[in-house]
Design a protein around this nucleic acid. Sequence first.
RNA 1: GGGGUCAUAGCUCAGUUGGUUAGAGCGCAGCACUGAUAAUGCUGAGGUCGGAGGUUCGAAUCCUCCUGAUCCCA
Length: 1042
Amino acid sequence: MFRPVPPEVDLVAMEEAELARWREHGIFQASIDQRADATPWVFYEGPPSANGRPGLHHVWARSYKDLLCRFQTMRGHRVERRAGWDTHGLPVEVQVEKSLGISGKDQIEGTVGIAEFTRLCKESVLQHVEEWRSVTERIGYWVDLDRAYWTFDTPYIESVWWQLKQMFDQGLLYEDLKVIPYCPRCGTALSSHELGQPGVYSDETEESAYVLLPLVDADPNIVGTATALVVWTTTPWTLLSNAGAAVNPEVTYAVANGVIVAEALVASVLGEDAEITKTMRGADLVGLRYERPFDDLPAAAGTDGWRVVPADYVTTEDGTGIVHQSPAFGEIDRQVAKLHGLPTFNPVGPDGRFTNEVPWLEGREVREANSAINDALEAKGRLLKRMAYTHALPHCWRCSTTLIYWGKPSWYLATSTLKETMLNANEGIDWHPASIQHGRFGDWLANNVDWALSRDRYWGTPLPIWRCDANHVTCIGSLAELSTLAGIDVTGIDPHRPNIDAVTIPCPTCSETATRVAPVIDVWFDSGAMPLAQVGYPHVAGSENSLQYPADYISEAIDQTRGWFYSLLAVNTLLGREAPYRHVMSLGHIVDADGKKMSKSQGNVIDPWEILSTRGADALRWWMFSQGSPWASSRVSFDVIDNALRMTLLTWWNTYSFFMTYASLNGFDPSDPRIPAEAERPALDRWALSRLEATKTAVTSGLEGYEPLGAASAIERLVDDVSNWYVRRSRRRFWRTEAGAPVEDSLSAQATLHTILLELSLLMAPFTPFLADSTYRELSNARATDSVHLANWPGEAPGRIDDALEAQMAVTRRLTSLGRSSRADAGVKVRQPLARALVFLAPGSALPLLDVVAEELNVDAVELASDLAAVLRYEIVPNFKTLGPRLGDRVQLLRAAFATLDGAEVAAAVEQGASFSVQLGDELVDLGPNDVELRMKSEGAYAVTRDGAEVVALDLTLTDPLRRRGLARDLIRQIQDLRKATGLEVSDRIAIWLTGADYVSEHFELIASEVLAEAITASPGTGASSPIDLDGRIAEVWIEKR
RNA sequence: GGGGUCAUAGCUCAGUUGGUUAGAGCGCAGCACUGAUAAUGCUGAGGUCGGAGGUUCGAAUCCUCCUGAUCCCA
């Protein structure tokens, strides 16, 4: 029934065989289908952007996703997992640009054309997805790749459109300026990534200006004799669009020389001798009105600008402490303006030159106009001073032109209006680690600003907004809706650019022709829309039934806090839905062995295939789950993975191989009626089963509680306990060669180990799905179509729990360890039997299994000693946990006071549960038995080792019989070595001739049985002999195979 | 520049609500075992818990600042 399994395992080959079998028999699909009516446990796959090869950090996230999905499946849930691919976005475009050897919008539109460009983008994504599929499969990440959602699919895009339309209809989608780093020569915005390129920032000298803003109708009680504010700007060209002045409400401002600046900056702005005539707080200045520096730009009726507004970001590090606000040319300015209702003016065109709104500067490049603007201010008496100022400015990496910050019309989502809703939703989310909830994520939500949605690019979901010349705006929710309005059927078109740009509609308001606005949308919206869009809601037939919302679980790396974790919440909050996920696991990053981030440029990237093709997926997965907290960043190297593999997986496999070897030899049958019931088995078996049960509980609660490390650690301990204690202590019970050995005992051991290994395969299934399945099927004699992944999570067997026995075994193992330490100290080998060991236990301790201690320590008797005073001295240690609260700072006196006590006397009192008193300073204090702990100090001739109150004392007295037994054992070991050296099989019988060992002749029978000798003859044999050194005496032995 | 997280043995990491002896594995040293054996076990050395203050009878643990790493944002 069982077949032998070699102790060496080729994990990679085994995994590939399992993969093939899973594929052939559709195990993944079966694991879902067989639970068709079960309660769903909903998982969302955060779509990876497939614009490059999958790295180790992707394997990391995918492993944690798979872990809990497999676990919950085995717990009896239906866990559908649809794969997804994030296909749009700038990184894809950049890659295509690179491969074409082009760069910039001019070349995309002029040389290549949008149609060809987007076609190439799609092709590029598809090319990488193949690699993703194969890594995904190889690591055993079960996710439905065949039904994957693709963000470029028409039903997906239509769902995104529909979702946007819901927001538009509620007035949550609007157009405003967005301030961006902009190259006026190339006419393009630069991404933050482009700004991060080396050499982008370099020093530039500009003519800065200290500008006077004359106060209008100011209350002298507030401003004293001041007639003007002073602002400083390094960009005088933005003064034409000045809309307000910002002060820090907390900063102190001063009146000097008739103007207002921050008190701390009076000397630097107005000179050392400027006299301060009045001071006030910034808050007092808020609301003051002033005359705008230039009035070329007409202000619309009702405009409420040119006043002082508060802004916390204003500092007194440079300038005047009052900051000129030009919302079209500074992102912070824009936000301040939005908050306080300041107007926005933008007299600068896309070419970076003034428009005809400012006739005297029309056509001039803005930075070049600074000097003329300062001249004009000076002529009007509005310039306090002008000076050259040098600072680092960003430059276009293509053409080296100095960038300007420029307000470009963009589309926004009004997320900030739903800030409170999102904060409330966040309260209901279970974060792992918990600190994210009110830390990184909570802070991000609390500081929420509206989502800049539009991107002036090509490869993305087109913004479904159509607009006519009269500026009437129409938002479209589907291709069908578009067809109706357009009067032609466009339901079959690819909705990407440029196709969609060609579709025009008569404006529903004025009937003039409306065309689509140019932008596509931020790819993060694509991913945030996935709960509805992955099923094509609401357009796709049946999508309302297949919609699963919200997710029970999502997991991604921590950088997704502001990425997918946010976009999911924002999109679905804007849709008026509850929080889209209940539990989140936020993962740390994988870094290299030196703690450095892995990056292509550093050349320290480990290709997952290097590990998968040499160690296999289970080794990689197990390392991930067992190495540390998922949310801490983890250093990876081949060494640490090998270690994890050896430590637990190979030990597990070795134990399994051991079982299979003897189960096969013995013809073990788990249904053998002679197998004793679990409760009737020997203590060692019941202990192992209790450990199994405790482990099961720990693994279950660890995975239920999103704490995989605790679960993995519990398994590590079990594997170690089973291999290095249970099997080690039970080995002889598996042999079945000793005549007259009770068959029930052997059957107990085999049945116990079988149960443990079988249930362990279930517990390991979510962690190491390959090894688990391979061992499970062998152990359960399952068919190829069966799988551990179709099995249910093992049920509880509370009857197995035996805390008392576990405590006994724990004491037993601690004493064994102490005894070995004693032997090591005394230099007496374990092979040498000793007459007795004395053990002393802590008060209230569980009783050790004395026969086990005796066997492990190779002593004839273990005595539970009650009086060790002869060999040991008592030490009394205060229990600070009880005494601290009671005595307060007097606990510091205890140490000295205890030194004066009679240890033996106090110990006697304590053991009887009596109290005693101690002098603390001038006070006599009564202490109860719980207030102290008894410990032992070694003294005397025994080999004594202690740990806390537990003590093992070995009687080192050696008698001649003991010595002879020791030598006999030595002889046995050396003959065994000879057997192996001469190439004998373990079951071969031999005959022995022996000289020079007569003094152990009383043990010849034992020796014969241990080395499988049919006879021992105390005379020389024939042929060559081997010398055996027995404690200095040389014996000669001849071995002959029978 | 702002915010988050982290810092524990040579290395990789645990450490539950604060309790006086801070643990594991690897590595290192020594020893043992020898019917899972190019496997395994045991024992040992090794830490002022990044630094400085504070709270407390008591701090790896709570608070503040500093230093460094890292992530996010500017």
